[in-house]
């Protein structure tokens, strides 16, 4: 699926950076909202749900674009284990971007909460009321959120390592604006 291209397409880069901002915001909103009793709690919850669903929609579009457009090849001198780590982490990212919002939606459904996005606009329930299911989904949403954040930190470190230390052009493949290749 890798093609001989220098960079991800404009659409891929736009989706990557837009979603990076949204996902980081979601993780901070998530841990922030569950640790406060102030009226901020409700505001954050009211952002968390629609933004999470927006991420689900964007992730599905992004998956389609990725299958259509592919990705530039990694540098041939990159050690095999690092290539494997890069590919594996991208699979996990795609899985998390799709699974996290579904877990949130399903968890609320299994607790019989209405899944309100804006005003009278709400999503249908996708599961019956069930305490066991709710617990399972809640745990998954909770622990995977931390896995997600840890993986983002690793990804951030790797991206900067490519940009600042290896200077191998990998960062430029995803850079929002064209960078002159430094090598």
């Amino acid at each position: 699926m890798t093609v001989a291209r220098q960079r991800f397409t404009v659409l891929q880069r736009a989706l990557h950076w837009l979603m990076a901002v949204c996902i980081l915001a979601m993780l901070f909103i998530g841990v922030g909202m569950v640790s406060t009793l102030t009226p901020k709690y409700l505001t954050l919850v009211q952002i968390h749900k629609p933004l999470g669903i927006a991420i689900l929609v964007l992730a599905l579009i992004r998956l389609g674009v990725r299958l259509r457009d592919g990705a530039p090849a990694l540098p041939s001198d990159l050690p095999e284990p690092m290539k494997l780590a890069a590919h594996l982490s991208h699979y996990i990212f795609y899985a998390l971007m799709i699974v996290m919002p579904l877990l949130g939606w399903a968890m609320l459904s299994a607790a019989s909460y209405p899944v309100v996005l804006f005003g009278s606009w709400h999503l249908p329930s996708i599961l019956p009321l069930n305490d066991g299911l709710h617990t399972l989904l809640w745990n998954a949403h909770h622990y995977l959120a931390f896995v997600f954040f840890a993986l983002i930190l690793l990804h951030l470190a790797a991206a900067l390592f490519h940009a600042l230390v290896r200077r191998d052009g990998v960062f430029a493949t995803m850079a929002p604006i064209s960078m002159r290749k430094v090598k």
Binding site: V34, L37, P39, Y41, L42, V45, A111, D131, H134, W138
Partner: peptide
């Protein structure tokens, strides 16, 4: 109401996990 919503969710999450 905001404080109650936050606290009731914790109570709910705990009790449903303790079936």
């Amino acid at each position: 109401p905001a404080a109650r919503s936050a606290a009731y969710a914790v109570s709910y999450d705990r009790r449903t996990a303790e079936a």
